[in-house]
Every structure is written in C-alpha cells, then in structure tokens.
Design a protein around this nucleic acid. Structure first.
Lengths: 335, 335
DNA sequence: CGATGTCAAGAGAGCGCTCTCCCTGGCTGG
DNA sequence: CCAGCCAGGGAGAGCGCTCTCTTGACATCG
C-alpha cells in the first residue's frame, strides 16, 4: 500500500518555474502576484494534484483552524434521543463551517478520556475549546482558560475560575411554566428535577420553587438524570408519596415522556387528571400522546452562539462573560 | 491576551541538562534512557508544563492520530431524533478512544461543505476517513482510496471504485419482517420506502418485494425520506390508494411512528386493523403507542466495526472488502 | 539623467519535533 | 592488554510550510 509521494510546495514551485514563496502567495490568495504567474502556478498545482500539508502550515502559523467540542458525558449517554448534544453539535458545526474551521468532537466521559482531552487541547491542536454541558466543578475549562486557550461553556460553569459561557434562562422559563399550571387551577404540583451537579438541573428546580413557594403550594420533588428510565422511577416515587398530585413539571422532555406513559399506566388521564410539562422541546414532544407541553430552549442557537463567542475570543476580541438566551413556553395538550 | 510562550523540547532539554533527542526519547517512551536521566527529564517537563506540539510531531511522523467521520447530509438533517448518526458517532468514538485517536466530525451537506471535506481529508490532516451513509454515487470515497488514504463506508457505496464498507443485512431483515406479517395473516401489505439514492432505501424495498412477490401479494409502495414528515405524507398517500390495507412496513422507525399516528387519526386501530413494522429500533420505538415492532440494526456496532477496519487499514493490514452485520426482528405490539 | 519610490518575486530563516547516524566510555573475552 | 561490543546519549538534518527581508526592474520626479 505505497502511498504516492505527495507533491510539496517545492515541487509545484519547480514545475511552475517560480519560488516557493510565490506558490505560497497564490495558495493563500495574496494579491501581489501577476496574473500570468498566478495562472502558471495554478496549472502546476492542478497537474501535480498539490494539497497543502496542514501540519506544516499550522506549525508556523500557530493556528490549526479547528476547535474542539467536549462532551463531558459517558459516551453511552451522549447520544440518547435527547436532542441536547446533537443540537449543540449542529449549531457549532454550522457556525464553524461558515468560518471554514473544523469541529473536533471529544467525549470525556471516562477518566482516561478526560486525560486525553486535556493532552489534546493543551497540545495546541485546536484553536479553542467548547464545553457542552458540565458536570460538577470540572477544573478543565478554568485550566485551559488560564493557559490562554480560548474556552466557552454551555451553561454557567460551577468551577472557581470564571469562564465565558452561554446559557438559557432556565429559572424564568420554568417559573412561567409552573405559574401557568397554577393559573389553570393546579394546586398539587410535583416536579422531577434533574441532576443537582449540573446547572441546568439546579436552576430548573429553583424555577419550580420560585413559582410554587409564593403561591403557598407544597414542594414535591423527585430526582432523575434527564433520561426516560429515571423518569419512570421518579414518577412512581411521586405517585407513591402523593397519589393526589394534579400536575408534574419534569426537567426534561424525556422524563416528561416517561411520566406521560406512567401516569396512563396508573389509569390517570392527561391533562384531565394530571397536567404534565416538560423541558427542551425535543422533536418527539410533538408526537407523544397527548402532545407534550414544554419549555423550549434554543439548543442550536446555544451551539451557534458559543461558537461565535469562541471565534471572537480566538481572534483576540473581548467578549461578554455570559450570554443568556430566552426560553419559550410551548403549550400543547398535556398541560 | 498574551499567551505565555509554550515551552519546547529545547527548553526542557536545557533545563534537564540533556539533549533534545533524549527528551524526545523520554516523552515517547523509549527504553534506552537511564533511570536517573529519565527522572530528571520528567521533572523538567513537569516544572515547565511542557506539552508536545502535535503539529510539529505529525509533520515528521506523517501521522496525525486522528480520523475524520464524514456525514454527507445537510447539517439540518443529521441530528433529527433518528439515532443513526449518533449511533455511528458513538461506536466510532468508543473504538477510537481505545486506540487513543481523535474523532474529527465533518458535515458535508452543502457543496461548499463537500469541498471543505475534500480539502481537509486530502490535506493529510487525518490518518483515515469514515463515511457515515452515502447519497447517490459520491465520488469522494473512491477518490480518497485512490490517493492511498484509508477509507471505510457505512453501507455499500454506489460509486464505481470499490471501497471497503460495513453494512447490515437490510434485505434479509426486511424479508423476515414482511414474512412475519404474511404468516400472521396479513394480505394487503404496503410499504413506505426510503430514498432510492441510498443503499439502505433501495435494499429495504428489495427486501419487501422479495417477501411479497412470491406470496402473490400486491406491491403497494409510497416513498419517504426516513423522516416523520415524509412518513405522514406517504401514509396518507397509501391510505388514499388502498384504504383496505392491513399492514405497513416503513423503512424507518420515524416514518413508522408517523404511520402509527396517522392511522389512528383515521380511526384505524393498530395492530387490530393495520399492523405496522418499522426499521432501526430507535429508543422511541419502545415508547410509541402501541410500542412499535421493528427491525433492529446494530448501529453502534457498525460504527465500531468501521473504525476497527479503518485502523487496520491505516496500520497497513489488509481487510475484507465488506462486512455485513445481521439484523434482528423485534416484535412489540404494533405488528 | 540620476535619485527615489513602488511593486513583484526570490532567498532564507525558522516553526518544534523525530530519527538516523555517530561518538563515548565502560565491559567483555581471547 | 587490547580488539570488539554495547548501551546511553548527542549532533544535526530535515519534515513542508510561512513570512520577513532583500533584490531587481521599472516608473516617476526633481
């Protein structure tokens, strides 16, 4: 499997009868090259099938034109049909495509993975690093930031070092949703909260409390980890403790979907007996039975904004330390 | 934002009082370095916070330790809640993690994107290229293969140049599913086929025909593009033409899900009036109403196998030109 | 008509690393 | 006692590119 020797700048230069520098100028679109020469170089490039060696280029330019997107989740969980990560990826990919940069995807679930990510990112193999969702107080974003590597997180990082981030208004969104339940007469409103080591999990619970407490209603909380499985368990738990509940706010659509099914399994009707509201507005939400009311967060937009911030950072501009995007209450039939 | 000058091999060598070569030996784990010196070098590395510059390394080693995963879809479609791409990504990520290599994700939906992918991959920025699902006869895989760049596709490529691939047994799986419908007494079995410019779309239709024809049953075909929206349209189309159909095989779970809902909207009961079988076994399939019978394809395993093949190719080993994984009929309640 | 300015193109010095020699000094064996 | 042999370590040549500096050829101006 002998790989044909790739042509180099040198080879093109020889063939076109010019210097390496001139070929480089043509390749990089400098204007100071006379048209006939430019044309000759182009022809030589085509004839030889020349393609620049990116490693050599980035060795001297100190840029790699690629950015890493880190998912600090176990690989197994990243791609459930939760639309969060895919949405972030998609937004980032779009924005990077426009900037003609590459997206390097890294899963940092295992400790080994985390270590690899650290080696790779600190190894200057990327111009910047995007963190999609953080668990606990991961020190890596702060460390990278201190190394001078551009970093942007999705969701306010819990660590000590301040790192620029993009997030949505969890509290406001949930508050409005729960308030809507209250306004429509619900009085026994439970919630299935997310993991309490993630900002999203914490703040959505805060939002629930901020609506329920002032109304003098009880706080009924069960915990899940955003997945359907955990949603089933949490729903049973709530039902056991409060068989008379008349509404559930679940911190993710996946959990809300599980709640829908579990409620039905117990003979309760949605929304007649129990109202259900989720969070995310994944595609499936419109296809559940009944269609799920939910709080939409602009996931793709988060990915886009993160990327935009990162690129500005990488370009040496200064940016707002935080960007908070609005959420929207989508009312369907479940509540 | 002045980035502190990164320490180089040279700096470490000076500090440890040895030569660059020796530091390189230590970093790369050569055994021919005496323990005291090795230790001194390690200390110097830690004190300086030295991290090797990967671009420089790959310039001389001609390896980059990263592989590209290409999705030839519009960014907008890659991450619907179809689990195909996420599954491939996940499988590939796992396998690459084990090999300590990086996953570079590229979307080649637009013509511009396609061109970027070509530049990047031919630019030797990756050690190999994985194609996740191909539309039509994309010439890129063949071209890369001819350039000597290791390539593996998911699904048999339609192009002229033979390229190694990993696929599942679409025909056999669908045949068994449709045969199951026939065996359970269905006689008016329609299908919603996938795009006919993709192997999966073509072969699933072939599988349907291979079961229906020998049984002397009519072939009722409508076409979709694997999405829910297209599933809705195709179902209405089938219903209009054949109001008496008693089973539908949809070439994707997403389309099957849409069929389920559309059938119900027309007052038909599943599976009593009409049986429905999908293809993929996405997570949602177990949560539809009724739970969807479907043909499971081991998506993650495809990603893993592709990656394994690619790594062997990159290591200079020779591999089987095709790997076909089995599919499995999962019977739930819909048919 | 020589001095100056201008612009295109070449020369050459690295970027940070790996890897092939080659050298040194301590041992072995005859 | 000396040739022969290692093992451990250094020197130095690039990998393929960019970019600054310099040169050379003209056009312009006093």
């Amino acid at each position: 499997m002998t790989t044909a020797q790739r042509p180099t700048l040198e080879a093109v230069a020889r063939r076109a009868g010019v210097s390496r520098a001139t070929v480089s100028r043509v390749v990089n679109g400098s204007t100071t090259v006379a048209e006939p020469i430019r044309e000759a170089v182009r022809r030589a490039i085509n004839e030889l099938g020349y393609v620049p060696n990116l490693a050599a280029r980035s060795l001297v330019t100190q840029r790699t034109d690629s950015v890493a997107l880190i998912m600090p989740e176990a690989a197994a969980r990243v791609f459930s049909d939760d639309q969060y990560f895919p949405g972030i990826i998609r937004g980032a990919a779009q924005e990077l495509e426009a900037a003609d940069k590459q997206l390097v995807l890294m899963l940092a679930g295992s400790p080994a993975g985390h270590e690899r990510v650290e080696r790779y990112t600190t190894g200057r193999h990327v111009d910047g690093v995007l963190f999609a969702s953080l668990h606990g107080a991961d020190p890596l974003p702060g460390r990278l930031a201190r190394l001078g590597i551009p970093v942007v997180c999705s969701g306010r990082p819990l660590g000590g070092t301040p790192v620029p981030y993009v997030d949505v208004d969890h509290i406001g969104g949930v508050h409005r949703a729960v308030q809507h339940l209250i306004d429509s007469g619900r009085r026994r409103i439970a919630t299935i909260a997310g993991p309490q080591d993630m900002v999203g999990g914490i703040e959505r619970l805060t939002g629930y409390r901020s609506a329920v407490a002032p109304a003098g209603l009880p706080e009924w909380v069960a915990y899940g980890d955003f997945t359907r499985e955990s949603g089933v368990a949490a729903t049973w738990q709530l039902l056991a403790a409060h068989p008379d509940l008349d509404a559930v706010f679940a911190a993710s659509d996946l959990m809300a979907h599980a709640t829908l099914r579990t409620l039905r399994a117990t003979g309760r009707r949605v929304p007649d007996d129990v109202a259900v509201i989720g969070f995310d507005d994944i595609e499936t939400a419109a296809y559940t039975d009944p269609p799920l009311s939910t709080i939409r967060q602009p996931i793709q937009e988060i990915g886009r904004r993160m990327t935009r911030q990162l690129l500005r950072l990488a370009a040496g501009e200064s940016i707002e330390p935080a960007l908070v995007l609005p959420t929207e209450l989508i009312l369907r039939d479940s509540g």
